[in-house]
Write a protein that binds this DNA or RNA. Structure first.
Lengths: 227, 227, 227, 227
DNA sequence: AATGAATGAGGGTTCATTCAT
DNA sequence: AATGAATGAACCCTCATTCAT
């Protein structure tokens, strides 16, 4: 009688794009782009099929908007965490890096990594986009940190690019893993990505720290570590 | 031991499924399962659309056969490399592990990792399959190697599971990367996965090697490495 | 004679339907009814989509209003030209008829012929409408003129209905042509419909004028003109 | 029991295109291109929706194929009728021309005229096609005939282009009329296009025949026929 | 065993129409 | 009266699958 909950189904032009982007990110990550129906996205965003097309010209456009939004507003934002840090490089890698990664890992943003992996070959302009917005700035950021550690004598004179990838690839993999095998019932509950990240960074740091001039020498790219 | 040569007349017939599997692996990895048309697979295998359905009851069946074949005959096969090895654990990780990974990386088999990542959530029985055939045996294998290193005093008493993932995740990521961003024109040519694998293993080994009882202590899972 | 000026404030409101009708005529003629979007009509009329539906219950209603308006206020209006005329029948056909046709041809009204041709079969009540409002009065009008020419001895005793159609069909065709091929870039610029109309009427008049009892006799419907 | 009529629904690759073209011509002419559903065409051709797309890449492609087929195989073919004729020009116009027109008029081919009129503005390349395949050859053909009549003294020295259009436009109009108003229930049953064509040609011929040098002079393009 | 013509359910997209503002 | 966000039926086209040959 009191119609307390009138379906507020109209006039939300401002909110629509974000609702659609959120729904689309979830579904594209979960099922893949091709296997997600436009109507599903609309439904999860709480609107009708037609409404989606008021905001995005096509399903492909929606995909690109999803990626673009994640890259420009979320991943890039993470950089400040690192820039703000003051203190030892080891502490930076250990605390700040891992904290930032966990934030990404715990947010829906982690899904973009799976999305990029799965879809980039069908939409090649995503590649350039991702390289420019994520890979390059991310690698530069961490490179500078590692280089700082070498310069101030904390680390051996290792191959910086190698270290960057050794640090980062597992984290990227964890994000994609989270949305693939990690989301399947009966996957390895034993493995905890959160504690892994800390441990992994520590392990790499152990490999970086000066070994007091004694062997093994610092690996530099190729087949180092020879006695 | 004997009749290794199939009679030439029948070879064609028996080769069909393999041609189809190869074509399907390529295409599913490249474009994703949903975006690959059954007819494309047939075409690339050199047969007609109808023929595909003589061998596989549905496109989904074909996918599962592809995965099953890769897992049972290729990835698992790699394990022997490791089992056969005798010598220091560091050398095992450095040489044999990296050699085996490169073999996988350079073969079409590397594609299954991307395939699994992209498709498990739509076909959940793949998950159990992959866990059972790849994750568990793989982790056990490497765990035993690392444990051997701890037992014989080469390594500090680290968290074995952590090390396994720190070793393996980048390699898995490299395989999926190879078939996504790595296959796009204009990706970072600078980064060489082959040299990375060796360097990465060395870096982790440096983290494992005994640090003479002096700090930093061995990381054990969580937030170790505190002063 | 009086209040020709509507109060300016209300003019807008009353002008709306006319703006919509004009826009609709243009677009329906140009693209066809089914291929014209209601929103386009509104846009060209300078109003919003919703406003269109304040004045017309549906797109089909709008079509019928367009036709009805053209037929009742424009084409029919032309008839007076003819009725007012006094003088020889040949002169009437030559001057007045051609002048009236040119007026129609040069106005947007010419489009209705294309519209009728293209759309009657999908909206059969247009047919009866058009027959009653245009075909019948038009034919009667010209029939009377031609009959007058026969009665006063200017013309041979030809089949009146034949002459009417011979006179009129090319003009109708010119109107539809103007809005189809005639509006396409690269159509025959050589052909000038305006001069054609005069020439055509003259040519038909030559066929009507008494041939002084000499053959060929006047055609009467079927296969006349025999020696 | 005796399954006398097995539905011969398969394997008719050869016949399909023609069946589809015939069905499409009918429906496009009847309802217009935009208002015809692809599935309707398929149904009328006795096949399923998907089959249509085995033969034509899109509905638009089908339209163009329909036009192309009609123009190249039917209308153009008519020219030979005229070329073969030997005899007086008046007889040629009267008998052969009218006979050929009736053939066109009575066949489904007559529909292309309505189709062109209705659709050409939405598919501009049809215009060039129609100009090249129909208008130009058709006008040249009849022009030569009329010129022959002038040259051999049968006709006055009239404006040839004018005569051609005076002859042809009514016929084109009849064809389009047949498929629009002419197909509506309750149209003017009184008017018989078949007898009209003969009568019309005769009437024009009367206008062409030499008037013994006495007035009215031959119309030449503009406003001739002045005393 | 192999083919490829045929099918028809399914999904992307459009657009006439409605209605809260 | 006017707007334009929202709806959802309808339509074009695709493609997994079947089956007569």
């Amino acid at each position: 009688m009191s119609q307390t909950l009138a379906p507020p189904r109209r006039r939300q032009k401002e909110a629509r794009p974000q609702q659609l982007l959120d729904a689309a990110l979830e579904l594209f990550v979960e099922k893949g782009f091709a296997a997600t129906r436009a109507e599903e996205v609309a439904q999860r965003a709480g609107v009708s099929k037609g409404t989606l097309y008021l905001y995005y010209a096509s399903k492909e456009d929606l995909l690109k908007a999803v990626i673009r939004e994640q890259l420009s507003t979320r991943i890039a934002a993470g950089a400040v965490h690192v820039e703000r840090h003051r203190g030892s490089v080891a502490a930076l890698l250990r605390d700040v890096l891992s904290r930032w990664w966990l934030e990404v890992f715990d947010s829906p943003t982690s899904g973009v990594f799976k999305l990029i992996v799965s879809e980039v070959r069908n939409f090649p302009d995503l590649a350039e986009f991702y390289q420019r917005e994520v890979v390059q700035p991310g690698e530069q950021l961490i490179s500078r940190v590692v280089q700082r550690g070498i310069d101030n004598g904390e680390f051996d004179a290792v191959d910086v690019s190698l270290v960057v990838h050794s640090l980062v690839l597992p984290m990227v993999m964890l994000c994609t893993y989270k949305h693939s095998l990690g989301a399947c019932p009966g996957h390895d509950e034993h493995f905890d990505p959160r504690s892994f990240i800390g441990g992994h960074i520590d392990l790499v740091i152990r490999g970086l720290l000066r070994h007091g001039g004694r062997p093994p020498a610092a690996p530099r790219g190729g087949r180092g570590c020879r006695p």
